[in-house]
Design a protein around this nucleic acid. Structure first.
Lengths: 247, 247
DNA sequence: CGCCGTGTTGACTATTCTCAACCCAGGTGG
DNA sequence: CCACCTGGGTTGAGAATAGTCAACACGGCG
């Protein structure tokens, strides 16, 4: 879909009609990636940017002993490899969590557009800044929160981000992520994730069964996580009115 | 010093003479910040960017209970608040660790320059990307490494970054950071940092006394940290030839 | 002189990890 | 159709890393 980049940019900043047209005219190829496969490999030098239009993915790094750290999760509308547009080489991999549809947009075209339309470059830069804000939030989450708060925080973040792109249903959402994935994201063992998830459920905050997360009590979940959604927002985007679950 | 931004940009990408002149002509004010004071407050909307020309600082977030997570350290040549150029509001604070000299450059001037000289915008964007790469590396460090490896990694990162700006002396460097700061950066208690630092010294990897870090055995330190400096490098900057300590 | 920030050490606690076994559902091949 | 296999989830027991609390040492500075 050639419109996917326009939609992305408009989430961040308003565009003029001329700018929209320019972006729409960029040749865009679609690509399918199967679950558990890499969309972008660590260390690779992709010649295009890959924008997820459908499906979920994660950024990750592998350690020497084979363990994995998930750096962030990507949802529809997210760009996998903006980094490579400027720094060529990826410093991490991006893997599909379920079957993904990806829009592929050549670097060359984007860089050409930047010359004449710097505002488009600024919009993408802003997107990269929001990505960095998520990294910072995760760092404080992993560095200073208990397992209980970490998991609560992750599930709050997902709710807020998915709500912004219309992927929540009531107070629940679909999340194709295993307990092992959650552990790899939060620096916890699978066993401990499992036990802590049970506690969160028993206390009536949130449950997760067969890839469906149900928020039972948003206020208490948010409090347990010390979750403040402002790090996810651009002041100029159209989704500044955050809606919370009704529970 | 009006030249500080030019130096910064040239670390990232080569500039034409015209571009250099443009950047040099930007009005730049100098500012002094005392140790332990904020250079940029969390939640503020600075109208300028602040570039550290002398001294050390850290990005940080405070938690509800008063604990602190340090998100990264800033050394001479680093920009504190590029984020605010595009997103207005800071999502974290930046505090001086020792007395700092800061170059203050108005947003307005930079944004005007971007219109005519998109390459300058791309250089700063690239700098922001390198910042994000540090965040990702820290996330895997905090999420998956032992206290021992985390501290080793942090001291490796400092050596590499300080070496790139000529702030190492032989196999040692000055580091105005307390053990509490290290704990806040790595998600560890001060007590545990202290004990682990002693182990690192006893095993002959690295020592830290009265703000001086001495690398005793670089190879073993690097191995213990699983440290790979490539995440710190821009492929186009002038400091791609990394030099390691002679020990 | 005494205070304060920093570093150091001991003793005890606890959060989290590891290992290991087991369950269950879904898909595959005989 | 069923046996089997695999990936995910669950549970128990014991071990280990790291945290907390508390006391003390040391040096610089007002």
């Amino acid at each position: 879909m050639p419109g996917s980049l326009v939609r992305k940019l408009e989430q961040i900043t308003p565009l003029s009609d001329a700018e929209k047209q320019i972006v729409k005219d960029v040749p865009t190829r679609m690509r399918h990636v199967r679950a558990r496969e890499d969309i972008v490999c660590d260390g690779s030098r992709p010649p295009d940017i890959n924008l997820i239009t459908e499906g979920f993915a994660c950024r990750y790094k592998l350690l020497g002993d084979g363990r994995r750290q998930i750096l962030s999760f990507l949802i529809p509308g997210d760009i996998c490899d903006l980094r490579a547009l400027l720094l060529r080489r990826m410093d991490h991999g991006v893997a599909a969590l379920n079957p993904c549809e990806v829009a592929v947009i050549p670097h060359k075209r984007l860089l050409d557009i930047f010359e004449k339309h710097p505002r488009i470059a600024l919009a993408l830069w802003t997107d990269a800044m929001l990505d960095a804000a998520i990294h910072r939030q995760w760092l404080t989450n992993v560095g200073r929160h208990s397992a209980y708060a970490r998991i609560a925080h992750l599930l709050c973040e997902f709710w807020t981000r998915l709500q912004a792109v219309g992927l929540t249903r009531g107070n629940s959402y679909y999340l194709p992520v295993t307990q092992t994935d959650i552990g790899d994201a939060l620096g916890l063992s699978t066993v401990h994730v499992n036990r802590t998830l049970h506690v969160l459920g028993a206390e009536g905050l949130v449950t997760m069964h067969s890839n469906v997360v149900v928020v039972l009590n948003w206020k208490r979940l948010q409090a347990a996580a010390e979750f403040d959604p402002s790090y996810l927002l651009s002041e100029y985007g159209r989704s500044s009115a955050t809606i919370e679950p009704r529970v």
